[in-house]
Amino acid sequence: MSHGKQFTLYSHKGGPNGWKVVYVLEELGLTYETIYLDFGKGEQKAPEHTKYNPNGRIPTLVDHKNNDFAVWESNAIILYLVEKYDPEHKISVAGFEERMQQLQWLFFQASGQGPYFGQAGWFNFYHHEKLPSALERYQKEILRVFGVLETVLSKNEWLVGNKCTVADISFIPWNQTAVTRLVADYNGFNFEKDFPSVAKWHKKLLEREAVKKANAVKEAINQ
């Protein structure tokens, strides 16, 4: 790549999974260039992208200082970044047990948050017909996931290691989408009242400088 930065990130302007990678890149002070793929034109399935990611989805990260090593799946990318570029454990943990807990939450985010929140978005905004029962199923799953987080965060400030880590950061984009769009008008939903510890945690995450910087870019390109 000719941009001279360490990483190329293949992403999408609105896709939540790409933005959590950006948060981690910003937290670690790493340089990157983002290529926003146009799904309407099928660019995510084009050879220029699938040569790095055979799944043809985003995000994909290419590390030009590591022989153009490519990683796809957002939480795999996050783990690659902290394993290789966070030796001081700024946003990761060091001990074996805590690392397993960090993995636990990243797996839960990838399997328990992302797919269910994504399906709520699909049936709310994109499905060709309205299916209230399907939408309600996934909205209830959003509340269930918030409940799991509330149980832990009512006793702890952060998910792992008594500090903000990638485990926490990975939840930001889908949580933000949920509270502003997916369940904003669901059965009197009130984030601060229903899940006060999660709401407080989410607010602290949004106030981090790296997150604010990334979100400012996101807002600007999506106007």
Rank of each mutant, 00 (worst) to 15 (best):
M1G: 07
H3W: 01
H3D: 13
G4Y: 04
Q6R: 15
F7R: 08
Y10L: 11
H12M: 11
H12E: 07
K13C: 09
G14C: 05
G15K: 03
G15R: 10
G18N: 10
W19G: 04
W19P: 01
V22Q: 12
Y23R: 02
L25T: 07
E26I: 05
E26Q: 13
E27W: 06
E27L: 06
L30V: 09
T31H: 08
I35Y: 12
Y36G: 03
Y36I: 02
K41H: 03
Q44F: 00
K45P: 00
A46D: 13
P47W: 10
P47A: 12
E48V: 11
H49V: 11
H49D: 05
T50R: 08
K51H: 00
K51G: 00
Y52D: 01
Y52H: 13
N53R: 00
P54K: 13
P54G: 08
N55C: 00
G56T: 00
G56M: 01
R57Q: 03
P59N: 05
T60F: 05
L61M: 09
L61R: 03
V62G: 07
V62D: 07
H64N: 01
K65L: 05
N67K: 15
N67E: 15
A70G: 03
V71T: 11
V71K: 01
W72F: 15
E73M: 03
E73Q: 08
S74C: 10
N75P: 02
I77N: 04
I77A: 05
I78W: 02
L81K: 07
Y85A: 03
D86I: 06
D86N: 07
H89Q: 07
G95H: 05
G95E: 14
M100W: 08
W105N: 10
W105A: 07
L106Y: 12
F107H: 11
Q109V: 01
Q109F: 01
S111N: 15
S111T: 14
Q113S: 14
G114C: 10
P115S: 13
F117I: 09
F117L: 12
Q119R: 08
Q119W: 09
A120E: 01
G121I: 03
N124L: 15
H127R: 12
K130I: 05
P132G: 04
S133M: 10
E136Q: 15
R137L: 11
Y138S: 08
K140G: 01
I142K: 06
V145R: 06
V145L: 13
G147A: 05
G147P: 06
L149S: 12
L149I: 11
E150Y: 12
S154E: 09
N156H: 15
W158M: 07
L159H: 13
V160K: 07
N162W: 13
T165L: 01
V166S: 09
V166Q: 08
A167D: 04
S170M: 06
F171R: 05
I172L: 15
Q176F: 08
T177M: 15
A178G: 09
V179W: 10
R181G: 03
R181W: 09
R181S: 13
L182M: 15
V183E: 02
A184D: 10
N187G: 00
G188H: 02
G188L: 01
F189E: 03
F189M: 06
F191M: 11
E192Y: 02
K193F: 00
D194V: 04
P196S: 13
W201S: 03
K204D: 02
E207A: 14
A210S: 14
K212S: 03
K213Y: 05
A216F: 06
V217G: 00
I221T: 10
N222F: 05
